[in-house]
Design a binder for these strands. Sequence first.
DNA 1: TGGTTATCGGTATGAATATATCGAATACGT
DNA 2: ACGTATTCGATATATTCATACCGATAACCA
Lengths: 233, 233
Amino acid sequence: MNISNTLQVNRPAVQPIPQPSLKRLPQYHHYLVDMETKGITRISCSAIGRDLGLVPVQVRKDLQYTGIIGKPKTGYSVSELIQAIEKFLGWNNVNEAFLVGVGNLGTALLGHERFSKFGLRIVAAFDTDPAKIGQWIHQKAVLPLDKLADLAPRMNILLGIITTPAEAAQAVADEMVKGCIQAIWNFAPVKLKVPEHIIVHNEDLYSTLASLSWKLARRLGVTVQEKQEKEAV
Amino acid sequence: MNISNTLQVNRPAVQPIPQPSLKRLPQYHHYLVDMETKGITRISCSAIGRDLGLVPVQVRKDLQYTGIIGKPKTGYSVSELIQAIEKFLGWNNVNEAFLVGVGNLGTALLGHERFSKFGLRIVAAFDTDPAKIGQWIHQKAVLPLDKLADLAPRMNILLGIITTPAEAAQAVADEMVKGCIQAIWNFAPVKLKVPEHIIVHNEDLYSTLASLSWKLARRLGVTVQEKQEKEAV
DNA sequence: TGGTTATCGGTATGAATATATCGAATACGT
DNA sequence: ACGTATTCGATATATTCATACCGATAACCA
Ligand SMILES: NC(=O)c1ccc[n+]([C@@H]2O[C@H](COP(=O)([O-])OP(=O)(O)OC[C@H]3O[C@@H](n4cnc5c(N)ncnc54)[C@H](O)[C@@H]3O)[C@@H](O)[C@H]2O)c1
Ligand SMILES: NC(=O)c1ccc[n+]([C@@H]2O[C@H](COP(=O)([O-])OP(=O)(O)OC[C@H]3O[C@@H](n4cnc5c(N)ncnc54)[C@H](O)[C@@H]3O)[C@@H](O)[C@H]2O)c1
């Protein structure tokens, strides 16, 4: 893994898309697919912005990162734009993933067929609970966790999803690292300690909950509220 | 609703905590509770920052919004800090909520007992599927959606959770608004059109997925990557 | 055909957020 | 008891992100 690190350092500077823009791209994508099914073939930033609650300039800037080029007066081709976003996000070629922790949340994710449209296929699940191991949940086998580090490299799995209780998450992450997994989608509310080259994204539902309850606790003035509604992820 | 709006406008400016800080508070909370169970009674921003991957200054600034005051050389009292965060976020008094859409994700949320520690109690679920209505899932009744607008005001429910397919989300939101629900936690990947005074927060799992797959698609140079790991929510 | 209008793309400005710096306070060791 | 190291809290700077602006271009209409 030192090798790959070194290689990466020497690469030319990567196109730096702002994190917020990156996170808005899927929203555009959803919206555009919806428009396409409605038979709309061309669309402008103003229209997108109106429907998604964003100012047109921001939409335009975000979309520019995908490399799409629009035409004055008519905007963008909807299908081209969808393609551009999918290509940019790497949603054309599927990432296969392992999921660890077949509880409430893990089961829900396993059952979400639609992920395959967004470049994600969960191919197997892992747990430590003997009652769960050996079961098939949503057509995926539940395997013992200690098989993960061995299987991942052989199946060339690069992505791991953690839906275990917080206490177990670090140990699971360690196993994933051992299995040469490159990126981790972590639903447990803990900061994982992993080597630098591993990509970790936390999905912290409690963050959103905090925002909501804070705002609900002190009902905000509308001016402030409006601003923060726009910021809502 | 005009009345409440007007009242809100006249209120003094609300203490403006940055959205990013607000979202970090639950992370501190988790960490601190963990520390407390380990018997640690005092803690410094440097220690928190080290364990959570943040620079000490940022931790200090975030915590200051809660009104906590620390002592030089020793830092903060862990228990006081936990209290301060909980009070600040309104996690002391419970918000009761309705959940709509008892599918994969809805069921997972219904089963998450731990939410009650974070000021959230889901008291009932709603759906339109006759097969689901009348069931009890995780000790919560599944009721027909058309009862929602009537029940919410009578039970004084202010928070709604949407876990339906995207196509149904807007209609559900409309029902919630009809039932005078004040805040919506939306898991469907659509922008909801609601009156201005309603607080909406979207939990867009696809956003995170986009980040992950983008980074995975072009394995980044480490320097860039390091920065973005810190930004990972 | 020429004017009008909507829209894109690039650049400039502004706001929000993150980080650095510095003095004051407090515990700790000598 | 006194110097030293650590940390807080406040202020200042830097960076990132959002928004405003402007010229150029293409469709549309008279
Ligand atoms: N369910 C939700 O709605 C929800 C909401 C917010 C956050 N979360 C977070 O998601 C995570 C999972 O939540 P959940 O409700 O699904 O929990 P859960 O208890 O229902 O499921 C946890 C699963 O992980 C398995 N597990 C435990 N230790 C393990 C280990 N060392 N290795 C492998 N598997 C192990 C358990 O056997 C179980 O199947 C938690 O960290 C929780 O904080 C869940
Ligand atoms: N499950 C996941 O892992 C996951 C991941 C990302 C996003 N999401 C999003 O969360 C939402 C729910 O996903 P899911 O997998 O739980 O879907 P699901 O199909 O399993 O469940 C949807 C539920 O909503 C109910 N429903 C449909 N129309 C309704 C209406 N008009 N009123 C009330 N209830 C209605 C259905 O009967 C069903 O019970 C979707 O918008 C999806 O995009 C889910």
